[in-house]
Design a protein around this nucleic acid. Structure first.
Length: 524
RNA sequence: GGCGACAUAGCCAAGCGGUAAGGCAGAGGACUGCAAAUCCUCUAUUCCCCGGUUCAAAUCCGGGUGUCGCCUCCA
């Protein structure tokens, strides 16, 4: 495939031309979470980043095989399960479900395969067995270790030598190991812990082996992209490389991509520091799209500092795009055939080219978003024209849609259903009550008639006015809004600004903003 | 102690040898019954500091300073 994509490879510490092993097909593996809690914002970054990378590769026309694992057998899970007196695997499963709830809201596409450790014991055991057979692993009393010194390239990813690592060792060394840096491939079971049968007795896998075994199973040797957070470079990915390449005598992956950290006051957000924010806590205050936008507004390898203010800024930025887009859709409705659209068509084409240029440069989403802002300005400018060309505007919309889809950002109006409808109906009823009080029965009846047309029946009783709805509820909110805007239009025409402003104020209270423009009134 | 990354306007943030994107905030103007949205203009002679290479450096090299990360579980 002919592309101009360059990616930064942690392995070579350089930006390299991206060439897949197999023409037109990207095989990628991303380290997923250990599921013993809801995910936090730090977990969300790689999820969103690599989802975006995947989307861009697909946009370029690649077939992408995307594998993201779940670590569901692990010390932390076992401990948490003990605390909560639950079965460890059930607990892990529960948080896998919760993971999808969060990831879905962030518009993260499902991986093609989401392998779990617990379902790949056979592969893992075979992997370890073969390493043992090749002399890279040894057993000590039911534990199996990888012999680091046997793998000559050890340290090539994290850029350090075994001796560097030894001098910096901060952990107590298990004396049974041949070398302090040797790491566990298989751990002997302690009583009460989940365990599986193996040639070395009851036990469970070490941390790193799962990714080697599962990536090997689903992607084979030398797959194209291996991704994860920067903190996985050492020891996790270093050890994966050692295990995999020792066994296969082939490179594990061609490109190693690592995202930078989320920080709080410039300090890494992490579970061990306790300064983390659960994604769903943040989603209570901010729309998931705002969070995604915020995550993508900085290049993925840079650190990203988090606080509410930064999300508010992201929200403002996203609103700018959102305003532009919904006004584009409005403009499309009243557009026709005119020949004044050249400039907007050029802008759309330029945006497309520049967007690709940005993404081709190691997935520079920050720049790509700037391109979107430029397009939005061009669109906004064009929208002020008295006549709008449907074809040109349509092209702009297509570009908007395509590029936003790559970033995984949706700008659709979010409708909350019944809550809003109740509020709106209350408003209409008050307005109508006012009209009736002023003996303006013509207006009052007109409101009732209009509501009748959309299937809403008003009943005036001694305790006030009740309403009920019959028939199709699909576009109810839109239809009600039409009626309200209509009422307000009439009020404005009659210079009854008090009523018009009251309507605007009340709508604001239920979260709807009215905008008067020369081409008519719109809402969001 | 070992290894590594980063330092750009009030804030966030692109930039990868050719003369400082974009967003937010702010100022002024246009539009408007008001408001919002939108449009136009302005806001870094300069990119932490000091040297060097080059016709040309925010970008490359050397030395400082500061911040952060990894070396233990972590995305």
């Amino acid at each position: 495939m002919n592309n101009n994509l360059h990616v930064y490879n942690t392995l070579t510490k350089r930006r390299e031309h991206f060439i897949t092993k197999e023409e037109g097909h990207v095989r990628m593996y991303v380290c997923g979470p250990t599921t013993y809690n809801f995910i936090h914002l730090g977990n969300a970054r790689p999820i969103v980043v690599f989802d975006t990378i995947r989307r861009y590769l697909e946009y370029l026309g690649y077939k992408v095989t995307y594998v993201q694992n779940f670590t569901d057998v692990d010390d932390k899970i076992i401990n948490k399960a003990k605390e909560e007196e639950e079965n460890p695997l059930a607990l892990a499963d529960k948080y896998i479900t919760e993971y999808f709830t969060d990831a879905d809201r962030l518009m993260v596409k499902r991986a093609d395969i989401h392998p779990k450790v617990s379902e790949h014991m056979e592969e893992i055991i075979n992997f370890v067995k073969n390493l043992e057979k090749k002399g890279y692993a040894y057993e000590v009393e039911g534990d199996v270790y990888f012999s680091v010194r046997k793998f000559v390239d050890y340290g090539k990813l994290s850029g350090r030598s075994i001796d560097d690592l030894l001098s910096g060792a901060r952990v107590e060394v298990d004396q049974r190991k041949k070398d302090p840096l040797d790491f566990a491939l298989w751990k002997k079971a302690k009583s009460g812990e989940p365990a599986w049968d193996s040639p070395w007795g009851q036990g469970r896998p070490g941390w790193h082996i799962e990714c080697s075994a599962m990536s090997c199973k689903y992607l084979g040797e030398e797959f194209d992209i291996h991704g994860g957070g920067y903190d996985l470079v050492f020891p996790h990915h270093e050890n994966e490389i050692a295990q995999t390449e020792a066994l296969m005598d082939a490179p594990m992956a061609r490109y190693w991509l690592h995202n930078g950290f989320i920080t709080i006051n410039q300090e890494k957000m992490s579970k061990s520091l306790g300064n983390f924010f659960l994604l769903r806590e943040i989603m209570e205050k901010f729309d998931p799209m705002v969070i995604r936008f915020y995550l993508l507004a900085t290049h993925y390898r840079s650190p990203l500092d988090f606080d509410d203010e930064k999300l508010r800024v992201a929200q403002k930025g996203l609103e700018r795009l959102s305003n532009s887009y919904s006004q584009l859709l409005n403009g499309l409705k009243i557009s026709g055939q005119y020949d004044n659209g050249k400039k907007i068509r050029q802008a759309a084409e330029k945006a497309c080219i520049e967007f690709q240029g940005a993404m081709n440069d190691d997935f520079n989403t920050a720049l790509a978003i700037a391109v979107l802002f430029d397009l939005a300005r061009e669109v906004n400018t064009y929208l002020r024209e008295p006549q709008l060309d449907k074809t040109s505007l349509g092209e702009a919309q297509k570009v908007f849609d395509d590029l936003l889809a790559v970033l995984g950002i949706s700008l659709g109006k979010e409708v909350n259903g019944t809550g809003n409808i109740d509020g709106l109906m209350n408003l209409i009823i008050i307005l109508r009550q006012n009209a009736r009080a002023a003996k303006n029965f013509k207006t009052a009846d007109s409101i009732r008639d209009h509501l009748q047309e959309i299937g809403i029946v008003l009943e005036d009783g001694t305790k006030g006015t009740l309403w009920k709805h019959e028939g199709e509820a699909a576009d109810l909110l839109e239809k009600i809004m039409e009626v309200i805007i209509n009422i307000r239009q009439i009020a404005r025409k009659n210079k009854d600004f008090k009523t018009a402003d009251l309507i605007r104020e009340e709508l604001k209270n239920v979260g709807i903003i009215i905008e008067d423009a020369p081409q008519g009134t719109s809402w969001k």
